[in-house]
């Protein structure tokens, strides 16, 4: 059984359509920890010690956030800047996170088609996520493809719930280690590995 830490950053969750539903589908069980950054650090004063201890206590780290201007909301950046300390997370003596898995759970207004070299965004989602991938590598972690909800503005509630269901399933299967590493590394998105449920597609 793997332990999963979801580091969640959303400045206006009350206005969110997708993330609110995603959170709803996170299984309530020990071993899956939700760390709501904007609720825990409304004044941006991050408790570095607490965050590092949380990281050490988990095997799989998730950054869950909306994609704002090709990046994360400000507090997640602040978190990265402060928590991933030199000599702890990276550098000659920084091995604290070695071997842990990391990926992003993101939502974007842009659609799958838009995030293509030839598409509107002129780059793929993996290219957008390059900074996170490099961060993971420097911290000696394994970076996995994202769980990605795209084209959010066009989604209706049943579709959003379907994403939520998939997210919940993904977390359970990660926890049970029932997904092979190679399988995950080869997928373009982790969503692709989870079967669509029948009842949610109305």
């Amino acid at each position: 059984m793997r332990k999963i830490l979801i580091i969640f950053a959303h400045p206006v969750l009350e206005k969110s359509r997708v993330h609110k539903r995603l959170l709803h589908y996170i299984p309530q069980q020990t071993g899956i920890t939700l760390n709501d950054l904007y609720e825990n650090y409304p004044d941006f004063d991050i408790d570095v010690k607490r965050e590092q201890e949380l990281l050490l206590a988990h095997d799989i780290i998730i950054w869950q956030h909306p994609l704002y201007w090709y990046s994360a909301p400000a507090l997640l950046k602040q978190w990265q800047d402060l928590v991933l300390e030199h000599g702890w997370a990276y550098g000659k003596n920084g091995y604290a996170l070695k071997g842990k898995k990391l990926f992003n759970v993101i939502t974007s207004g842009g659609s799958l088609q838009a995030y293509q070299r030839e598409g509107y965004q002129q780059c793929t989602i993996n290219e957008v996520l390059k900074p996170y991938e490099r961060t993971a590598e420097i911290c000696r972690m394994t970076y996995l493809p994202p769980f990605w909800v795209s084209g959010t503005h066009k989604l209706e509630l049943p579709q959003i719930n379907e994403y939520g269901h998939k997210y919940g399933q993904l977390l359970l299967r990660l926890r049970q280690e029932s997904l092979k590493d190679e399988e995950m590394m080869q997928a373009s998105c982790l969503n692709d590995l989870i079967e669509t449920s029948e009842n949610n597609l109305a």
Binding site: P11, V12, L13, E14, Y38, E39, P42, D43
Partner: peptide, 8 residues
């Protein structure tokens, strides 16, 4: 039940 960041 309001979000802390919003309230702040």
């Amino acid at each position: 039940g309001f979000r802390k960041y919003t309230a702040q």
